[in-house]
Nucleic acid binder design. Structure first.
Length: 151
DNA sequence: GCCAACGTTGGC
DNA sequence: GCCAACGTTGGC
């Protein structure tokens, strides 16, 4: 069982959208490191949903991997902003897993609140210049987050 | 393979 | 809207 953090802009796709959809595929990621992490994801892995470009940014809820990574369909759609002319169906470049909504945190954990928690000092998302939109999360950090969210 | 220019992310 | 920190692109 592994733990992950995935960022999304709530203006584009929020935890409430995920709650409504119940299931979604995480398309549009166009970063190789993030893609490689998504390929590693296994059924049942837990995902922290992070709201970026929000006021404040922070952790909004939880999801689970409900389907392992498969070729991101948007890379083949010419009209999509995620279209990649260099990708082919025989040899797709981008992959995405499917996520199932688990819960919205009763208490949204804002970035400032995460920063005050000394035990999370080493968490990747809190490191300077951490732009990666898909990150692994330590089991111990995951547990502390659940504690803060009073789940 | 180097690296400058450019584009993007994301906090503030 | 600003800008630091990246990641990517493309000329050489």
């Amino acid at each position: 069982m592994a733990y992950w953090l995935m960022k999304t802009e709530p203006e584009v796709y929020s935890i409430d959208d995920l709650k409504k959809d119940k299931i979604t595929y995480w398309d549009g990621v166009r970063n190789y490191q993030a893609r490689n992490f998504m390929k590693e994801m296994a059924l049942g892995d837990e995902v922290l949903i992070y709201h970026s470009n929000a006021a404040p940014p922070g952790l909004a809820g939880l999801a689970k991997i409900s389907k392992t990574a498969y070729p991101d369909p948007t890379q083949f759609i010419r009209s999509s902003k995620y279209f990649d002319p260099k990708s082919t169906k025989e040899n797709p470049r981008w992959f995405c897993p499917e996520l199932r909504f688990t819960k919205k945190f009763k208490n949204f954990i804002g970035l400032p609140d995460l920063r005050v928690e000394k035990r999370l000092a080493e968490m990747l998302v809190l490191k300077k210049g951490s732009r990666l939109s898909v990150q692994p999360v330590d089991a111990k950090h995951f547990q502390i987050v659940l504690e803060l969210a009073s789940v």
